[in-house]
Design a protein around this nucleic acid. Structure first.
Lengths: 102, 102
DNA sequence: TGACATAGTACCCAAAAAGTAACTGTAAGG
DNA sequence: CCTTACAGTTACTTTTTGGGTACTATGTCA
């Protein structure tokens, strides 16, 4: 919107849960309910919304298996993987921050 | 809250404008109205709130000069400066993202 | 026959975040 | 004497966000 790179990043990961979701998926593919349990107390509604947005930004890939009960897997796209270094630098700083405020 | 380093980082910079403010201050000290003009359309209220929170997290320093009209300067604290690399990696990724979606 | 599991959607309401407008004090400049 | 500048604060309204509940489909298991 503004052309500022930092704001561009924020617009993609601005959602309350997006980075947490991406951070989980960085460790590997997960199913919907798996994500929900991992990130609790996120609600199904919020999880769905955030996943849809991440998908439309091409950061994650949604794979539906036509089975019953339904099976849907989420994973980072190749593009989404380019975001891992950013999250790593966040994690590193967060670690220091946690120690500092311990 | 959760002990997750990424979430810890998010809790500090979660405000809508915080990173933008920090990113500005990374280039140097700024006065209140200077910041407001630079970050428009942020409102005075929001700017005040975000600055106060950043200050109480010790990321920025507020310096008041007892003159009329008032003069208040904001700058990154030493601790705040440790966040610059994180913002740089965000900016880098944002640049690629902007090009990709150009 | 009936419950269970998965991955959602639809709708309504409450809470939180953000915006708006008016007000503060004081000195300088016209 | 009236206006402008700065750096806010306060009260009120609006918008956005998030939560709760109920509902969907259908194959398997008991």
């Amino acid at each position: 919107m503004s052309g500022c790179p930092v704001e561009a990043t924020l617009s993609v990961i601005g959602g309350k849960w997006k980075i947490v979701i991406l951070w989980r998926l960085a460790r590997g593919t997960m199913r919907f309910n798996e994500l929900q349990r991992a990130i609790s107390p996120i609600t199904r509604k919020m999880l769905t919304e955030q996943l849809r947005e991440l998908e439309s930004d091409n950061l994650i890939v949604r794979t539906v298996y036509p089975v019953v009960p339904p099976k849907v897997e989420y994973s980072l796209s190749e593009y989404g993987k380019t975001f891992i270094p950013v999250m790593q630098s966040m994690a590193q700083w967060g670690l220091v921050h946690l120690e500092r405020n311990a």
